[in-house]
Amino acid sequence: MFEFDSLFGAPTIPVDKIWTIEAGAPNLILWAAPAMLLLTAIEMIVTYIQEKPYYDKWETLGSTLVGLGSLVVGAAVKLGLLYGAVWIYNHLPWRMTLQWWTLVPCYLIFDFFSYWAHRISHEHRFWWATHVVHHSGEHYNLSVSFRLSWIQNLKIIFFLPVAFFGFHPIVFFTVSQLAVLFQFWVHTEYIRRLPRWIEFIFATPSNHRVHHGSQEKYIDKNYGATFIFWDRLFGTYQPEEEPPIYGITTNIGNKANPIYINFHELQDIIRDVRQAKGFRRKWFFLFGSPVEVARQKQRLAEKQVVSQEQSA
């Protein structure tokens, strides 16, 4: 029989031994990077040969530069995140020992909180500013998976509950990397519908294409990172029907500048909050639904046009 004593009650990790955690957690993303770049290059070549409109050179350049910046930012904050995870682990009485089979429950729990972190990132404008980078591409291809915001690590607060479950830090960081790597292959037009049972369980390319669509029926749907059944459970699932129109409701103009790609929404938030009158309006422009903010700004712009025409 399974003995819980063999799983719980692991010893604390001394701070001076934290390097053993860093060494023990495989850097899966770094190892996978060459394969990801090779597959992206192959897709680009096939797209060029077939004359498919799946890539734009400036947008691809922007995705690549954003991705390189994300790697730098990730490396810079890794040690801080590691110290935080170990600190939490050491203060839990139900610390789990390093058992590799715990990757399975950890991954499932991690994906549940990933769903909610992703959903909140679409429903509240401040958090949308940490995610809009990923949706700003108007083409759907493997390079889109590189478009990860440089400030996305702010969303680590949504994953704190996973750390409080007591999983070993090596398991926690391995799962977080596996979750990121899973999302690489779903960003492609070349994989169409998969068998029904796969489409029912997983966030496949078809399911995720919907998520990147800018049509009304596709907006704020299919948040699942690995498993799509969260969307089915919480009422945010939408099957792929007509081809998605990619991008955001108001697409950006500077497609190759990684600074602009990362921070244009924050600039807009600051401007809108400054111009808004009253606390309620300022709060709305900071934490309101990005969709509602865009609609209100559109209505305001239309009123200004009408006013200018009437005064002319």
Results as ranks from 00 to 15, higher is better:
M1Q: 09
E3L: 01
F4C: 15
S6R: 00
L7W: 07
F8R: 03
F8T: 05
P11C: 06
I13G: 09
I13E: 03
T20C: 12
I21A: 10
A25E: 01
P26E: 13
L28P: 08
L30D: 09
P34I: 04
L37D: 03
L37P: 03
L37Q: 02
A41H: 05
E43F: 08
I45T: 11
I45A: 11
T47H: 11
Y48L: 11
K52N: 15
P53H: 14
Y54A: 10
Y55H: 08
D56C: 15
K57G: 06
G62N: 00
L65K: 01
L65G: 06
S70Y: 00
L71T: 07
V72C: 11
V73G: 07
G74W: 00
A75C: 00
V77D: 00
G84P: 03
A85W: 06
H91N: 15
P93Q: 01
P93Y: 04
T97E: 14
L98T: 06
T102F: 03
V104I: 03
C106V: 11
I109E: 08
D111P: 05
F112T: 09
F113H: 14
S121W: 02
H124G: 08
F126T: 09
A129I: 03
H131G: 13
H131C: 11
G137M: 09
H139K: 12
N141K: 11
S143E: 15
L154A: 05
I156G: 14
I157E: 01
F159S: 14
L160N: 14
L160A: 15
V162T: 08
A163I: 07
H168T: 05
F172C: 13
Q177W: 08
L178Y: 08
L181K: 02
W185C: 09
H187T: 10
P195K: 02
I201S: 10
A203P: 07
T204D: 11
P205V: 06
P205L: 05
S206M: 15
R209F: 01
K217G: 09
K221I: 00
W230V: 05
P239A: 02
E240V: 15
G247Y: 02
T249W: 12
T250A: 01
N251E: 08
I252S: 14
N254W: 04
I261K: 01
E265M: 12
Q267I: 10
I269W: 00
A276T: 04
G278E: 04
K282R: 02
F285I: 06
L286E: 09
L286H: 12
L286F: 14
G288Q: 03
S289T: 07
V291Q: 02
Q298H: 04
Q298L: 04
A301N: 11
V305A: 12
V306Q: 15
E309N: 14
S311F: 02
A312D: 13
